[in-house]
Amino acid sequence: MKKSNSVGRGAFRVFIYVFCIFLAILSLFPFVIMFINATRSTFEIQQNGISLLPSRYLASNYAVFTGKTFDPLKGFYNSAIISTGSTALAIYFSTLTAYAVVAYSWKMRQAFFSMILAVMMIPAQVTSIGFYQFMYRIGMTNNFLALILPSIAAPATVFFMRQYMLASLPLELVDSARIDGSGEFNTFNWIILPIMKPAIATQAIFTFVASWNNLFLPLILLTNNDKYTLPIMVSLLRGDIYRTEYGAVYLGLALTVLPLFIIYFMLSKYIIAGVALGGVKG
């Protein structure tokens, strides 16, 4: 009885591994294609969009990418400022807002939380135009702040942080901090934030990725050569139907994704190991 159970369990484990390896291949596939295409010429890509064999045009693709009227290094720098800035703001203020909703009982808190949810439901395609016109009128085009400051109000992140706190934040901790004489703001910064690390790490990844890959708003807000982000530069390589430099586009996409890898792998230890925060208090 016990033996057959462990055989079944062994077979089950094999199934899990096969299944996970299959999913992993499926997930890595587009990256392989992207990196391989970065080494192929535009015409090779046009003939066969997908190939598993690298070619020898990496250098010439790089020359096309850097030979344009913009500087990819500068784009990298710009993207980094915008994404870091908006991620930092989104994470910090979302956690703070969620904390305000969870830790304090104030009259408006239910109404306030409902409002946050409502904000999340607004379709973005049309309001982005209203937003653009507004930014244009107050002279915030070509200014990174127009892309960074709105992150202070990131409803989905607040929502996540709230749900996470509801499930896992021991409020007794706050009480004991009060007894120790800690101010509310200090309690948040030095006690709550560290506990929220796993939640912060996951949300930081999502926010950073979304901001780094964002194209539409930067494309219409940043019209100055010096302010272009990496995705804008890549999109300029394909601005014209008859002169799309696919090799350089894929190289640009590959270069765009590399920093995301780094950030992701840096933060992924929280996803892998998981600092189980329930264990903070016995």
Binding site: S27, L28, P30, L253, I271
Partner: peptide, 12 residues
């Protein structure tokens, strides 16, 4: 696996 499964979300 955990790290890899999220990766399709990184590409545009």
């Amino acid at each position: 696996f955990k790290v890899v499964f999220y990766m399709p979300n990184i590409i545009t």
